[in-house]
Design a protein around this nucleic acid. Structure first.
Lengths: 144, 144
DNA sequence: TATTGTTATACTCTATAACTATA
DNA sequence: TATAGTTATAGAGTATAACAATA
């Protein structure tokens, strides 16, 4: 067929920030998943452990809201971590329970945190500290 | 249980660039999907149209490699676009066929491109042009 | 031998709806 | 009425394996 090339740029993806964000995110997630696999943790599970490790009274609904995970998907995730002895529940009221790390859960979250930091250095270590900090602030600001 | 809070930072996610990249990417993809839905296109389908619109001889394997989509998943994607009359095949050799945009495919990809650009402005318009360009270059460089 | 295109299939992640128990 | 937690389920998106046809 015939068409005028004016309407689409010669390399459309070069100007699409969303496209490059996605490609980078996929790459980063794959590396993170591999970094956490030795501990039997998926990224979402590690995130939950990190969240609970912050301390304070947090129900699984609170955590789901903070991490963008729906209640329906939190249920089996939390149940799995409890079954593995990494989390425990503490009664808040009749319908809510605060989640706390067990000793084993604390230990594994420490190791997972170290692995996550190493992963981040692997992914972003080519940037200088100020560049990395600026990128973090920018990306954080764009969604939050 | 009891533990020393030293080993995990008070707000662990504040320093995790990968986490914020993912949250932003999810947000951006959702907005893009909504922006393309009126044309009956998913982001991956629009990407394929943009790719073909660049011109040059491109097989579906070429496009899959460039976009990070596996051959097995390209097959039904391309078949759908052909069935809708947006793409046509041209023989290259016995096992490869170059993909070209039909007139309808060109028209819809023009509209999808305009919608994509509007979407990008919606997502990233709060940044100044130099900031946006710097972010694009940085993110692109980190995965490519 | 390697590559293209295809089919079938499985797995993960995410979304929706409905239900209970409680506030 | 609204919320917490659960269950079941459906839909994307993506991954692997195998195959025929061709290079």
């Amino acid at each position: 067929m015939h068409y005028d090339a004016e309407s689409l740029p010669p390399d459309p993806f070069d100007e699409l920030l969303g496209y490059h964000l996605r490609r980078l995110s996929v790459l980063v997630m794959a590396d993170l998943a591999a970094a956490l696999a030795p501990f039997g943790l998926k990224p979402a599970e590690a995130s939950v452990l990190f969240m609970i490790g912050q301390g304070g009274v947090q129900t699984q609904s609170d955590i789901g809201r903070a991490l963008g995970i729906q209640r329906a998907n939190m249920a089996p995730l939390i149940a799995g971590l409890i079954k593995r002895g990494l989390l425990a529940r503490e009664r808040v009221d009749g319908r809510s329970q605060a989640l706390t790390l067990s000793a084993a859960g604390f230990e594994i979250s420490r190791k997972a945190w170290a692995a996550t930091k190493a992963h981040e250095d692997r992914m972003f270590g080519t940037l200088s500290d100020p560049e990395r900090e600026a990128l973090l602030a920018r990306v954080r600001g764009l969604w939050r």
